[in-house]
């Protein structure tokens, strides 16, 4: 096994050269750069970061363009192709061809039993999973930032109450709670034994994951704000009569973008894997909705007979999570050059 080597060597070199180039005379004298531009320059020199960014963008592009790709490819994730052409599956309903039935017609093979197309199922699955994870990340970050900044800035009783709420949320076993409450949430909207619409499943998942995700971000940002609140520039702004809104948006938030961005890059892959985990357990998205976790769950049913089917969603997820983690690390290095991993 050769693990991809995100070697530390180019990182160190780029760090040095980046610092040199910032101070070097050949960067036009007198031209000033914003911290964002500096971070972008540092990031561009980080080869691992750029490659992983390309991989991550590739995944998002696939997710966005899934309908287009499947149109060009001429198949969709719902049709059971085996019922049109029974020769695709053998007598035991496993793909007739080698390697899970991979062929020029079915690039990633066909699904055992139902005979759906693996390729389109996977790209639509990535679309569902990334969509849910992205929405959950945005909501979690937004709520976490608002609560954390408010608690830290207002202080006093608000801070105390928010702090205790965070304590309680963090001591709840979140995975178990979400598993337990998904049926409860559905019960609130849909009568028992009715079919649960897909959008409701997705919305419930997003809300439940956000419900348990915001607390750690809020706690982190609260701490940051507590530190920033006592700094001179905030005091100066107060003395000059700046409104609280101005202090929060113009003085505090610009200093918080780095931790916010870093936290959300940690959240997204975590949400992708846990969304798939819920689908795998049968409490998240369910068949026939194409989903990363649904695919793995389907694969688990016949992994001893047709291992190829399991391999595609599994490997795709490992590649995505790995690339995103590397991207997160690089973003951290670029945004916060002092931090040493």
């Amino acid at each position: 096994m050769t693990p991809p080597t995100p070697s530390a060597a180019p990182l160190e070199v780029t760090d040095e050269s980046a610092e040199k180039s910032i101070t070097s005379p050949d960067s036009k004298a007198g031209e000033s750069r914003s911290p964002g531009q500096l971070a972008w320059r540092r990031f561009k020199r980080d080869r691992t970061g750029v490659i992983s960014a390309i991989v991550v963008i590739f995944f998002f592009a696939i997710a966005l363009a899934a309908p287009l790709i499947s149109k060009l490819y001429g198949k969709d994730p719902y049709t059971t192709y085996a019922s049109q052409d029974p020769s695709l599956l053998d007598a035991f309903s496993y793909p007739a061809g080698a390697n899970g039935g991979m062929s020029s017609q079915f690039w990633f093979g066909i699904e055992p039993q139902l005979g759906r197309d693996v390729f389109t199922f996977l790209i639509y699955g990535i679309r569902t999973s990334l969509g849910i994870a992205l929405a959950a990340t945005l909501i979690t970050t937004a709520v976490g930032v608002v609560v954390g900044v408010a608690a830290g800035y207002v202080g006093g009783k608000t801070d105390y109450i928010v702090g205790r709420i965070i304590d309680i949320v963090l001591s709840i076993p979140s995975t178990l709670f979400i598993i337990a409450f998904m049926p409860v949430v559905f019960g609130l909207f849909v009568a028992a034994d009715d079919n649960i619409p897909t959008w409701l499943r997705a919305t419930a998942l997003i809300l439940m994951m956000s419900l348990f995700g915001w607390a750690s971000i809020a706690r982190l940002l609260r701490g940051q704000v507590l530190g920033l609140r006592e700094r001179e520039f905030v005091e100066a702004a107060k003395v000059t009569g700046a409104s609280p809104a101005r202090i929060v948006f113009k003085e505090l938030l610009p200093n918080l973008w780095t931790p916010i961005l870093i936290q959300s890059t940690l959240l997204l892959p975590a949400f992708v894997t846990s969304e798939a985990g819920f689908a795998f357990l049968g409490v998240g998205m369910i068949d026939p909705t194409p989903d990363w976790g649904v695919m793995i769950q389907r694969g688990a049913q016949f992994y001893t007979q047709d291992f190829t089917f399991m391999l595609f969603p599994g490997l795709a997820m490992v590649i995505f999570v790995l690339a995103f983690n590397l991207l997160g690390d690089s973003a951290r290095d670029a945004l916060d050059p002092k931090s040493k991993r």
Binding site: G293, A300, G314, V318
Partner: peptide
């Protein structure tokens, strides 16, 4: 880094 990107269900 690779190990922490793996999932138990895979």
């Amino acid at each position: 880094l690779l190990g922490s990107s793996l999932q138990i269900y895979f």
